[in-house]
């Protein structure tokens, strides 16, 4: 049995690609499972999806806690989420990134096999809007299974009803681009060490929780949503700022920082999700979106407990 964990952000198609992957492996004669994790998070928040595949029927419904393969659709997640949790050194880490394998290895401290694919760039080259299918193509190559033709057939099955013929053709091209971008490999199922307490490790015991699930006010500020940005952040040219505060009133994330005298001083990049409403609101053109490297993105320092 092969177990895969996909890490993405809401809207990047982690769930879709897991379903595409399952459709392809079913075509290849495997038994498959594809399932996402549902939460209160909205587009941009870290999300997970999972696949299982095997030669015989899969009956288990337990969570995937020690995957053979981890796929990361957004490089910024490397700093925000423990992506290699439960991944055996014999397994595979596939990351959509412009960075090198050694750079990724240094950041995540994973000793096993790492494959990097510049998925965003390849997606744009193929005319696609999302890197998820590019990464699926790369994964098929890195695992040696399924064949690219089967993966493309999986895309037709999983997405044919949702996409226009043109968009489907783009998807297929994106798969091919990903397939061609990495060197061939093979998947060896790893020996799994099940972790019964997996994802709830380190959380409070029930006895220590407040009566009635009451929460002390104002604790969300410690949650860093800066990682939701997709490569662009607002930047201000202060000499053009007239302190009209329109960026402040229209910011959904309370990320416009004011001084005690309520003068605009800058953005809180730990909170800013990069919606660019401030750019639209600014009457003098003082604010513009600028590119930022995921690796250098503020707001991605590991969270304190």
């Amino acid at each position: 049995m092969i177990e895969i964990r996909w890490h993405g952000r809401g809207g990047q198609g982690a769930k879709t690609v897991s379903q595409l992957w399952a459709a392809a492996l079913l075509e290849a004669g495997k038994w498959v499972q594809a399932f996402p994790e549902y939460g209160p998070e909205r587009s941009g928040a870290p999300v997970q999806a999972y696949n299982r595949s095997d030669d015989s029927a899969i009956r288990r419904r337990a969570a995937v806690t020690s995957p053979d393969v981890v796929v990361v659709l957004d490089p910024s997640l490397l700093a925000e989420v423990d992506v290699t949790a439960g991944l055996d050194p014999g397994g595979l880490l596939l990351v959509n990134t412009e960075e090198s394998v050694s750079a990724v290895r240094e950041r995540v401290g994973f000793e096993g096999r790492i494959v990097c694919v510049p998925g965003d760039r390849l997606a744009i080259g193929a005319g696609a809007t999302k890197a998820n299918v590019v990464v699926a193509g790369a994964l098929a190559k890195a695992l040696g299974d399924p064949p690219v033709a089967t993966l493309k057939e999986g895309a037709r099955i999983a997405l044919g009803g949702k996409l226009s013929p043109a968009a489907l053709a783009t998807t297929v091209a994106a798969i091919e681009a990903g397939y061609g971008a990495v060197s061939a490999g093979r998947c060896v199922p790893v020996s799994r060490t099940p972790r019964a307490d997996g994802p709830t490790r380190g959380l409070k015991r029930y006895r220590d929780l407040a009566v009635g699930a009451v929460v002390a006010a104002g604790t969300a500020g410690r949650t860093r949503t800066g990682g939701w940005r997709t490569g662009q952040r607002p930047d201000v040219e202060l000499r053009r700022c007239i302190n009209c505060l329109l960026c402040w009133v229209y910011c959904p994330d309370s990320a416009v920082e004011l001084s005690d005298e309520v003068v605009f001083v800058g953005f809180d990049y730990d909170l800013c999700k990069g919606c660019a409403l401030c750019v639209e609101a600014c009457p003098t053109g003082a604010i513009a979106m600028v590119a930022e490297s995921p690796a250098l993105r503020p707001g991605l320092a590991p969270q304190g407990k």
Partner: peptide, 27 residues
């Protein structure tokens, strides 16, 4: 806007760090 901003500066009644969508109108 200044009065409103001063009030938020004194006490932020609703904080960022929530998980509403990027560009959500609700907050």
């Amino acid at each position: 806007l200044k009065t409103m901003a001063r009030r938020e500066r004194r006490q932020s009644r609703f904080q960022g760090g929530h998980s509403l969508c990027r560009g959500c109108g609700v907050p």
